[in-house]
Design a protein around this nucleic acid. Sequence first.
DNA 1: CAATTATCAGAACATTTATTCTGTAATTCG
DNA 2: CGAATTACAGAATAAATGTTCTGATAATTG
Lengths: 215, 215
Amino acid sequence: MPHRGRPHKIAPEEQVRRAMRLFWRKGYYDTSVDDLVSDTGINRYTVCTAHGGKKSLFEKALALYEAEVTSSFLAVLETDGAGLFAIRDFFCQFLAFLEQPIGAYGCLLCNTSSEVAPDDPAIANRIERYIARLTGALRRAAQSAKARGELREGVDLDQFADYCAGSVLGIMSFARSPAPRRAVRNYVQGILHAIDAVSATAKPSPPNDRKGKRT
Amino acid sequence: MPHRGRPHKIAPEEQVRRAMRLFWRKGYYDTSVDDLVSDTGINRYTVCTAHGGKKSLFEKALALYEAEVTSSFLAVLETDGAGLFAIRDFFCQFLAFLEQPIGAYGCLLCNTSSEVAPDDPAIANRIERYIARLTGALRRAAQSAKARGELREGVDLDQFADYCAGSVLGIMSFARSPAPRRAVRNYVQGILHAIDAVSATAKPSPPNDRKGKRT
DNA sequence: CAATTATCAGAACATTTATTCTGTAATTCG
DNA sequence: CGAATTACAGAATAAATGTTCTGATAATTG
């Protein structure tokens, strides 16, 4: 069906995408409708009519974030046959992410988890499902890794998956903090070491690579 | 000097402490002065006069949080001669913390790091100093550990300290999320394993303790 | 006890915020 | 082209927020 009436100056999905970026940077409460209007070019009235108000637009932004940003990160894990190398690659992605300016925003879902989820059941539910998706993907990859003998004996799959999931929140929290980027890179390196530590292919010694080391 | 005029119904420091708890739970933006008044019993007028307004009271709350809560956690690390065992004990504390109801609030400084630091230089500075204190304490403990031969060869002290510091943010972010407590406990266990992995006292096999395991 | 000082309790104020209203403009359908 | 429909732009509105004012209250000091 074509379009009746005046067309949108900005496509609705693009409106949500721009709102997403602003919420990502400033958080939910500190982003006013005025901010949305002046920063993204969305019409005030449209926020309330087409999108159902600020809160509703925020929820659309969360959904779009998960569909685009999160899914992009998780792709390597949610591929069939993803194993321990995929988990490693998954975390390596964050090293590249941290180099971008947007890396300082952290993760919209993680930020929201701290900011609004504790007091909003609907938001909390979305965050819960996000964490379940993340943990599930990690656990399946760990399961495949174990089946293929990539893991050392005695590794608890559930515990390892939860460790990795928590580490993602840690990276994103650290990334949004004012800590030096080098510290965040070092943190990711530590997680990579922890992953190597459960690998069946024994490492002769802890990899003392010079990356991110103070001079 | 004694007190002139009518005394406070609630001692000023106790007022800050109560405000701290509310900010801790609800965050800065979602806590209104009305909330402070009705929830803590502080007088509206006093908020603006004695404490200099909402933002200033918030900064006092951050300072008190660091002085009381953070310092309590860091005590084991900031003791002279703290080594690898102290680092381990430091993280074990969080397991007990998570069992308390207040564990679901996460850490006020970590929450603030995500919520307001990115847009407020004064707050960002305080968070920066907090992270520097945390990382410094961890680094000094790691240094002692190395000097005493508690660490495996080739462990990068700065990288390890940053890893531990990031892990603290991870724990607090995960703790505030709607994830099941068991997942957070498992995450802490993973960090403990990572610490054991740099220990010179080689472990025969990954400790497959049943704690926190799904049945 | 009277004077002084500082807090309290609640009203009052100015600003900000989210939402809604109003007239205009841009498109599609008949 | 004319009618219908929908979005735009900015003003208007109602609620919420942070701050300030006002009279009353409770302590100290001389």
